[in-house]
Design a binder for these strands. Structure first.
Lengths: 194, 194
DNA sequence: CGAGGTATTGACACACATCAATAGTTGTGG
DNA sequence: CCACAACTATTGATGTGTGTCAATACCTCG
């Protein structure tokens, strides 16, 4: 479990190209998809100094017997991750470079805001343009061009590794990703034991 | 839960284009990612006549308290779905049309073989070329061309909605998707109650 | 001060999309 | 059984978004 810092989870293809499948922020559980597999599918890379809390498999197993409420929440969070992957599949499969980049920027902003609700329209990140390309399926060169295009449309401002979203609604519309709201009615979940 | 038939789960984007996020085969649980959300993210479409078994939310909740073993297996299967989505993200994000189509064909063949182990190198499917395009992020026209290319390379044979994989190892290599083997050591799972 | 990584920009190439036309297939109703 | 409409498959011509290659500038760190 990531306490502090940025981590990416990536997969390397046969031809050497790389796809970043997830940008992890504090609060995320790292490497969980690979518990279903023999060999880990993903490579974790820290982009900043990080703080971690380790969770053993035994602890995970005990969770299911001793804290079914938490286990169910963990299950829900795995389903949420599937939704995020599905949205990205749509983004990469069916939309232009501009849409993909704005989708990434809005997505990161939303998630950072969950962690620090006082966050404004501007945030810092440690990503290079090459890494951004590996996230949204573009080359670093093209990422650069699209950044310029978004700037010229007055949708964003950049200063080094800091980005300001000038018109979040417009970016969200451009991204093509619908707003997802979490389920409110969780009464079907098992109740916490105490 | 799907008992018999083919179902696809798709998402429609703002501009009207469609992405099929999952092809469901018998044994799959349909719509599970959306339990985490307020409104369903996916549209389910039956491609053939189907037989279903309905599972209520209450039943799902009870599973976590009364059958932690099964709940843990359900959790694992959700993680497996994440892996599949991650592999597809790589396929769509970083590879050519030929790679994507062979990845789809090999993937479908693998999953059909799990259901019917006696399956040979040939299988039937109900997918139109437009639907295949919606799965791998191409236009129907281009799917047609790539089918032709694979035929000319003597990698596949087609006859209507039936496909024969002539050289599965070559197709698998071409697809660029590594072979995934499920975890063997599941001793950390809670034990079944009886 | 030099070296390696990162960002930026331009010229050119190519994979895939788009548009269009035809043929084949399926289903429906008279 | 035929006629018609709608869908699907196929093929060609052309357009375009993104990749590739290359050169330069910049920045950071030893």
């Amino acid at each position: 479990m990531l306490i502090e810092g940025w981590v990416v989870s990536s997969m390397t293809l046969a031809d050497g190209s790389r796809q970043i499948v997830k940008v992890h922020l504090p609060g995320d559980i790292l490497g969980s998809p690979s518990v279903a597999l023999d060999r880990a599918a993903e490579t974790l890379t820290a982009l900043t100094p990080v703080r971690l809390r380790s969770i053993g498999l035994a602890g995970l197993g005990a969770l299911f017997t001793r804290a079914p409420h938490l286990a169910a929440l963990l299950f829900l969070s795995a389903q949420q991750e599937r939704i995020i992957l599905m949205d990205r599949l749509c983004s990469i499969g069916r939309t232009s470079a501009e849409c993909r980049l704005s989708a990434l920027l809005v997505h990161l902003h939303d998630r950072l805001k969950l962690i620090r609700p006082d966050l404004g329209s501007r945030f810092d990140h440690p990503l290079t343009q090459e890494q951004i390309g590996d996230i949204i399926g573009l080359t670093a060169v093209h990422v650069n061009r699209v950044f310029r295009a978004l700037e010229e449309k007055r949708l964003i401002l950049r200063d080094g590794h800091s980005v300001e979203l000038l018109d979040i609604p417009a970016l969200r519309r451009l991204s093509g990703v619908p707003v997802r709201t979490l389920a409110q009615d969780l009464s079907w979940l098992p109740q916490p034991l105490d």
